[in-house]
Design a protein around this nucleic acid. Structure first.
Length: 294
DNA sequence: CACTTGACCTGTCCGC
DNA sequence: TGCGGACAGGTCAAGT
């Protein structure tokens, strides 16, 4: 579920909420969600302080004063939700309907408690997500980190770079290639569909048939869509919540994602939903015409 | 090596 | 209401 804008939104929230606090306990209901040994957790996590919250692709990195890092992947349904202690919550006012209910709930896998009584909940309905404690210096050695492509919102990410990196996937569909994290970091199903609509490229188009000038447009669309989504606090289709338990609002601005049967905002044609690269794929059959030529 | 498919899990929605 | 099947935003291992 969470793609780059959602993970970035969580990162910004956690940076504000937990940096400088002291961890006093970490309870774990699911070995797969957090497989570190209790002795490791005790030695390198308890009595330490989060010093920074970083993001690479869809991976969240909480650096601790012990020189260890909590590496977190939310996968489809993971959430990192911070809850202040009870007296703070009381003074914070009425709960909004965009908030989660009481925590912990049945999806709660890990609870991190800070010395001021506040808590950080790692919830994950489908148990695909995970967190791992490891030395900060080892994080770049994770296979995923070595393979993952450039950050699309960096200024150094250009059409030339995207075009070059796409060459390794020139025989697959552009949709499949955009979902490949080794081509470009952080794009998932929502923002792949939205970017391809913006660039007027049919999702099933073979990468090798797309011109450089079209990739230039796609590069701009990727940046624009991701930035807008961050500005809207990400997309909440069902599960996603930010670090304060609130939903994101990007889907109200989506042009094709989850809009099958509705009119294309550019040409009025009815949006279709197909399966491409094994994923639900939304597009406008009129303005995203399949390109067979170079 | 490039590419596709199935697996990992639980919950929800849709048709019968 | 209940039940079976399809499907859900991500990634990896195993297959072709």
């Amino acid at each position: 579920m969470p793609e780059l804008p959602e993970v970035e939104t969580v990162r910004r929230g956690l940076e504000k909420l937990i940096v400088g606090k002291t961890i006093i306990s970490a309870t774990n209901d699911n070995h797969k969600s957090f497989p570190n040994e209790p002795t490791e957790v005790s030695e390198f996590m308890l009595s330490t302080t989060p010093t920074a919250v970083r993001r690479r692709a869809k991976v969240l990195l909480i650096d601790l004063s012990s020189k260890y890092t909590l590496v977190i992947h939310l996968k489809m349904t993971g959430q990192m939700v911070f809850v202040a202690n009870d007296s703070d919550r009381f003074s914070a006012g009425h709960p909004s309907d965009s908030m989660l209910g009481e925590l912990p709930d049945k999806s709660t896998r890990v609870i991190i408690t800070f010395s001021d009584g506040s808590k950080l909940f790692f919830n994950d309905q489908r148990k695909f997500g995970w967190m791992r404690l490891m030395p900060t210096i080892s994080v770049p050695e994770i296979d995923f980190m070595k393979r993952v492509g450039p950050e699309p919102l960096e200024h150094s990410f250009t059409a030339k770079i995207l075009f070059e990196r796409l060459q390794r996937r020139k025989n697959s569909s552009i949709k499949s290639a955009l979902l490949d994290q080794s081509v470009v970091a952080g794009i998932g199903n929502i923002y792949a569909d939205e970017s391809l609509w913006g660039a007027q490229i049919h999702p099933a188009t073979h990468v090798g048939t797309i011109s450089f000038s079209k990739i230039k447009i796609l590069t701009t669309e990727i940046k624009t869509v991701l930035q807008l989504a961050i500005d809207k606090g990400g997309s909440t289709d069902r599960n996603y919540r930010n670090a304060e338990g609130k939903k994101g609002s990007y889907l109200a601005f989506a042009r094709v994602f989850r809009r099958e049967g509705q009119e294309c905002p550019r040409c009025g044609t009815i949006i279709e939903k197909i399966r491409t690269a094994g994923r639900g794929t939304h597009f406008c059959p009129t303005c995203q015409v399949e390109r067979k030529t170079k």
